[in-house]
Design a protein around this nucleic acid. Structure first.
Lengths: 247, 247
DNA sequence: CCTTGCGGTTGACATGGATCAAACCCCCCG
DNA sequence: CGGGGGGTTTGATCCATGTCAACCGCAAGG
């Protein structure tokens, strides 16, 4: 029996799993499925993997076979250009899917790296397609998830194309806050899992600029920063900064 | 019988169509389908609309019911933020799909505007889902198209996040050239359908910067510009500019 | 307890692209 | 044929962010 290239390279342990009793089912793929349908999804998603902080879940260029649902933890995806430039294209948290970019060419087009010890559910894509031919709700929900990814990317393009540094960071913090809230965590207090450099890469800024913007927000009483620990003190204030287009 | 809101507002004429004899079928949704499968797709895609230059195919906020395949012509999509900022999120040409962003919320999330007189095929989305539950090839191809859109967006994020003005414009021209080539047009000579301002919006630059970059490319003998008419003289040169990261 | 190193902060300065302004060109229309 | 307007080009100047460099502070390991 041969391990997949991914598992071989990274030696990622494997665990049994079940959507039907996963507390993320309202955020993740099973959303909207009946008991019976979810049981069928369970048959398909029966492998869970641990990915330790710093490990790659997959790398650009590897053959695409599965998408992954994050069960716990935190990831970044990034793209590397031939000339050495790279950029973080997203940060993903529990309940979100990883690997959708690989469908188009049957190869992953970016790297996915765990920013903290994480667990993912392994979803063989051809079996997901098969099941979504049989379960309309699943099919439609999957299409919505892919579409949401496109809309999200448009938002990032907007941010990169039209916003200044502080606006970008405010947008970033508000987005994180909102996603933590949706997962039942505090909306006003959390730990960043990524470095200033990774934030900068995602926002199209240098790490010094990110750091300065954090300091400025703190001076203005909008947030309290201590290393990676963030407390958001003034959400309306951040929102105002985000849309303070009148230079 | 009542017209759809779109048709009512824009009064877009309606024509019969067929994928099976469309010369774009190798680029568009029918890719990879058998004769018989294509015939079934034809049943679904039986309405073609003309959209005149400057008209909206759809607007952000309108209910989403269909996606559109461009049969001929040229479109831009753009997003408008509450604070007045807007950005072009893409330019689409024949054989490409419009409207995928609307699946996620059942509402279009951007505006689609024709940049020249165009024709689109109207594809009712729920019927497409139905058919793709029956035809595996279609289903898989549709997923690939959505995924390709995500990958494309990552490319734009890369461009906006890490490239300087001339690199962005070089990348833009090379991309256009390559897409024209794939459609059987000259790869070295074409007319831009969009203004400098629209290019700038897409690339996260001001129109003056775009104009200056065009002039510079011309001085350097990389291209010949005359208004909207572009002749690409030195593709390797443009590629080199694009990846000239060593500031 | 000290060392080492990585990530973060802060300051001084450089610069690419934005901004403001003027002029130009092409096309349309009277 | 002349005027007008949108789009484009070009120049002068400004400023946000990048760049370079020093320093700080926490955490891991000897």
């Amino acid at each position: 029996m041969s391990l997949s290239p991914v598992a071989k390279e990274m030696s990622i342990p494997v665990i049994k799993t079940a959507c039907s009793n996963c507390n993320l089912r309202e955020l993740c793929l099973p959303f909207g499925l009946s008991e019976e349908e979810m049981a069928r999804l369970d048959e398909l998603i029966n492998v869970r993997k641990r990915v330790k902080r710093g490990e790659h879940l997959y790398r650009a260029g590897q053959p695409f076979e599965s998408i992954f649902a994050i069960r716990s933890g935190f990831f970044k995806t990034d793209v590397l250009l031939e000339d050495g430039r790279d950029q973080v294209t997203g940060f993903q948290m529990a309940g979100e899917l990883l690997g959708l970019d690989g469908i188009s060419t049957e190869q992953h087009s970016c790297n996915a790296v765990a920013l903290e010890d994480s667990e993912v559910c392994h979803i063989p894509f051809s079996r997901l397609e098969q099941l979504s031919r049989e379960i309309q709700t699943l099919q439609h929900h999957f299409h919505k998830v892919m579409s949401r990814e496109i809309v999200r990317d448009h938002g990032v393009m907007m941010l990169l194309g039209t916003m200044r540094a502080e606006e970008r960071l405010a947008a970033f913090l508000l987005n994180l806050s909102q996603r933590f809230t949706a997962r039942g965590f505090s909306h006003s207090e959390f730990n960043l899992r990524m470095t200033r450099e990774e934030i900068g890469s995602y926002l199209g800024l240098k790490l010094e600029t990110v750091s300065r913007a954090f300091s400025r927000f703190q001076e203005e009483g909008l947030i309290a920063v201590q290393q990676k620990h963030i407390r958001i003190l003034d959400i309306p204030g951040l929102k105002q900064i985000m849309s303070h287009h009148n230079h």
